[in-house]
Nucleic acid binder design. Structure first.
Lengths: 248, 248
DNA sequence: TGAATAGTGTCTCTAAGACATTATTAT
DNA sequence: ATAATAATGTCTTAGAGACACTATTCA
């Protein structure tokens, strides 16, 4: 075909191509609520708005490698720290960046508690924003984010570029995988109670769940190992702590 | 951040970037079996192997638009012909193409019977290959494809580049969406029998299904409208023909 | 003892699998 | 009639929702 003939004579520099980046939706928990790490833009365009950390994709690095590099450079998290990277979707609207044509591969990053707070305190300029998921049934909907601490006082913060769409899709993906995969556990610390696990599920789904049914489902799955230890610091009956471990 | 300062002074032509393409997994049915449309490569590299049709992404076209253009140019299908395009995954291994760095956004294309046979007969050099899905449980596995007609005689054909991975992922995605979305119907003609629908599901899942339960599930969902007509040409009791229509 | 939440028992309802039975068409 | 498949009835079982009840801890 002509495509092959074209490629045979192709000069890589001859034609303009879109630039290619990766952007990371860094998800974790803040006081039990789902939250993302964002950078406040101080330059044009979209100065004052909030964006996910990202980077250009190098000529000799994989997409996954570029995402891992961003995790390292901008969030201060080394690979293999329990943080999980998963490709989410590729966004290619022509005018998504006013400066030039940039196609971005969005990654969903699930951070356990330790990694999340570590990169928040890392001084790399990342802020945490709590996510509020409206109940929209099966369909996806707009997702609001509020700067940590001011959850019920301030206005939702505004996103740069198409990053609001990216976040909405990330939540949708999370929802879809919630009850057949182990994404719910990836956000929790090493040890957690069943109530914490249920809170995470409810926050992501945006709807309350039936307590006995939820416990049965989780325990019957066989992924939870009781530690024998109990939570501390409550003024009532402390719950048992569990560890997540897939059998075999 | 330095990223912004960098971009301010950025000369779009100054740094080399990966090339960006779209590739289309064109899925349809051939004698009731799932099949894909492929092009046999006659040039180096990977001459003699089979590849999905694709194209470079233009500087001023959306990813979806580029995919639609490929559908038009290489499969001869106009948009809005009932064929559905859905972004699948972006493949970015550094050496996936030996000539240069090419990142490709793979699209899953569900073609109804009419469109599939039309583009097969269109003379654009596309061949149909029947897909054989091994039963691999929930996990994805290798997917074999056989040139139409020689299904049980010939060896499975070999794919160019990483296109075997792309096909395996396409089947996996299809499986996942099969029983909560309408992808099963997108492959069938306007009117079809419940047995045809079940055959499609079984072929994609790679496992037999319980007939009464399948019928109940499909009919209770409310997406099937009985037409009153019946299939013709059987030597036994003809089945009722249904149309797919989502309520509201 | 009271407040608050952890954790469980049980009933009901829904949906799926298994299997058998009836229905309908062509030859 | 016979062959072949369509279409349905029914029994059983698994799992979820609802709701009430018991258990355990701190103040």
């Amino acid at each position: 075909m002509s495509e092959d003939a074209f490629l045979e004579a192709y000069d890589p520099a001859a034609f303009e191509r879109p630039a290619l980046t990766v952007d990371l939706v860094l998800l974790g928990l803040l006081e039990g609520r789902p939250a993302v790490l964002l950078m406040k833009r101080s330059w044009h365009p979209h100065a004052g708005r909030w964006a996910f950390p990202g980077s250009f994709v190098g000529l000799d690095e994989t997409l996954d490698a570029a995402a891992g590099r961003v995790l390292q450079e901008k969030a201060g998290i080394a690979e293999g720290s329990g943080t999980r990277l998963e490709q989410l979707y590729t966004f290619g609207a022509v005018d998504r960046d006013p400066r030039m044509r940039i196609v971005t591969v969005a990654y969903l990053t699930l951070m356990p508690e330790a990694a999340f707070t570590q990169s928040l305190a890392g001084g790399a300029g990342l802020s945490a924003a709590v996510i509020e998921v409206p109940w929209t049934g099966e369909a996806g909907g707009p997702v609001a984010a509020y700067l940590a601490g001011d959850w019920d006082e301030r206005a939702p913060l505004s996103f740069a570029f198409d990053h609001a769409d990216i976040l909405a899709l990330a939540i949708l993906r999370l929802r879809g995988k919630l009850d057949y995969s182990d994404v719910g556990f990836a956000l929790l610390p090493e040890q957690f109670t069943l109530r914490q696990l249920q809170d995470v599920h409810e926050a992501i789904l945006g709807t309350p769940l039936n307590k006995p049914a939820f416990r049965r489902r989780m325990l019957d799955r066989g992924w939870l190992v009781p530690t024998g230890a109990r939570e501390a610091g409550t003024s009532f009956r402390p719950a048992e702590l569990y560890r997540f471990q897939k059998p075999l």
